[in-house]
């Protein structure tokens, strides 16, 4: 009986090891390649023959016409912080209004937001490009921030679901105590909503790091010092460049992933709480 149990447990964990291996292979490969002495793709072996830090050194200190990683990182960070502030405020504002307040246009606005969300984002994106071009905002980081955060209010549903779980009695009590709606928002609901705020902040902060298409569309001048990380790294994989820059691409991928991973693992608890409460009870 006991032997059977042990075998079952070994099988169970063996299966997990296999799964984790599958999931980690690309990640391990990117890390290994980033330390490779071969600047291009090694297509013969999974493990590089020799290890070196030269790719990281080149990436951080040796900017050339193709690789401008420090600039890209700075650009993306600035865009991400600005996007994060605007998007998070928009999402929380809309979510509170839709969840905790009752007004006439509420249902109409909610239905409209659902309808608008059904249009493919790519379609709006193409037109946004023309609007920004007419406003002279292409090839500027401000334009990019506006694109990322302008419509952020549409993504309020999960946060609304979370606010719905804040007991109504609490808000009613505050109203009886003479608190205004603004006060309830800032002093009652926001302090109780840490998980969803963290969730929203992480999500909106990650948008500029993950997005590729908008950035490519809007920062199209070809001046590589203006780019964000994603277009810069994508460009390294161009047919003519890949054999000299693939290892640097991997190093860049690792450097971008480290802060994001740390953020993610620390915030994992909030993340799960925020999204499940929001998604389930909405």
């Amino acid at each position: 009986m006991k032997a059977k149990k042990i075998i079952k447990s070994v099988l169970r964990h063996g299966f997990l090891v296999v799964l984790c291996t599958i999931w980690l292979v690309p990640i391990v490969w990117i890390v290994l390649t980033s330390f490779s002495t071969d600047p291009g793709i090694n297509i013969r072996n999974f493990f590089p023959e020799e290890y070196t830090l030269v790719n990281y050194h080149k990436l951080v200190f040796g900017s050339d016409t193709v690789s401008q990683f420090p600039n890209w990182f700075k650009n993306t960070l600035i865009v991400a912080i600005a996007t994060c502030i605007i998007s998070t405020s928009f999402v929380l504002m809309v979510a509170y209004a839709m969840s905790c307040m009752r007004f006439k246009a509420r249902k109409t606005l909610m239905n409209l937001s659902v309808t608008i969300n059904l249009f493919p984002g790519v379609l709006a994106m193409i037109a946004v490009y023309f609007v920004l071009k007419n406003a002279g905002l292409t090839n500027s980081h401000l334009g990019l921030v506006l694109v990322y955060s302008g419509s952020a209010g549409l993504g309020y549903l999960i946060a609304k679901g979370f606010f719905d779980t804040v007991p109504t009695t609490l808000r009613e009590a505050a109203t009886i105590d003479g608190a205004s709606e603004a006060r309830i928002f800032f002093r009652v609901v926001i302090p109780m909503s840490k998980p969803i705020i963290v969730y929203t902040i992480i999500n909106s902060f990650l948008v500029p790091w993950a997005d590729f298409v908008y950035a490519k569309l809007i920062l199209n001048s070809g001046i590589s010092s203006d780019w964000t990380v994603s277009i810069g790294l994508y460009n390294m994989l161009d047919r003519t460049l890949i054999n000299h820059y693939f290892a640097q691409f991997c190093a860049g991928g690792v450097l971008v992933s480290i802060p994001i991973s740390i953020l993610f693992v620390i915030m994992q608890k909030f993340y799960v709480e925020g999204i499940t409460n929001g998604a389930v009870k909405g």
Partner: peptide, 21 residues
């Protein structure tokens, strides 16, 4: 308060989603 909360986000949606669409 809902008007205060909604005016900016709605304006954003109009400019960056509705008009382009």
């Amino acid at each position: 308060f809902h008007i205060t909360l909604l005016s900016l986000p709605v304006a954003g949606v109009v400019v960056f989603t509705v008009v382009p669409l």
